[in-house]
């Protein structure tokens, strides 16, 4: 379990920004994985399966946040005070971190898995339940969005 902990946490912190949220999501993911382990079939690698559970957990957390944060949506418009700011330890990566946060969750997940975790299109497809072609399309749009989002920071 420890072997998969850091990968799961890295993905969660990039998806969610706040370390506390990421910790909780990873714990939830491990508990869910452990409970579902008897249903795990070795069709996919365990790490891919673990990514799948973690990413789904993160998407659920984000969906819940949207509901809670709906009346405060004005606050999201300010890119300077996003929660990922705290996670970006270094000045050089601050712009990219903020830009990743500004992606939609649907774009952020493939971007994080590909660019930060180095998964293949096939693996990302398994994690997100998408065809490799669909992964490629989303990733492409995510990259273009990211370039746009980074510019005000540079």
């Amino acid at each position: 379990m420890r072997r998969h902990e850091s990968a799961a946490y890295r993905v969660a912190v990039r998806m969610l920004g706040r370390p506390a949220d990421a910790e909780e999501a990873v714990q939830d993911a491990f508990v869910a994985a452990w409970r579902a382990l008897p249903g795990f079939r070795a069709q996919s690698r365990f790490s891919t399966w673990m990514h799948r559970i973690t990413v789904n957990r993160c998407l659920t957390v984000i969906a819940g946040r949207r509901v809670l944060a709906a009346p405060l949506s004005g606050a999201e418009a300010d890119p300077g005070h996003g929660p990922l700011e705290a996670a970006a330890a270094r000045e050089g990566t601050r712009a990219v971190t903020a830009a990743i946060e500004s992606l939609t969750p649907e774009q952020r997940a493939p971007f994080v898995l590909r660019e930060l975790e180095g998964l293949s299109y096939d693996e990302i497809g398994e994690v997100l339940d998408l065809s490799p072609a669909a992964v490629k399309g989303r990733l492409h749009r995510a990259r273009l969005e990211l370039v746009e989002a980074v510019r005000p920071w540079r």
């Binding site: 379990m1 850091s6 990421a22 910790e23 990873v26 714990q27 996670a87 990566t93 990219v96 180095g118």
Partner: peptide, 18 residues
Amino acid sequence: ELAREDVRARSDLVAAAM
């Protein structure tokens, strides 16, 4: 650079999940 950043969970995370 961001991908190479050393992001670590707190050490008792697995213990908490266990």
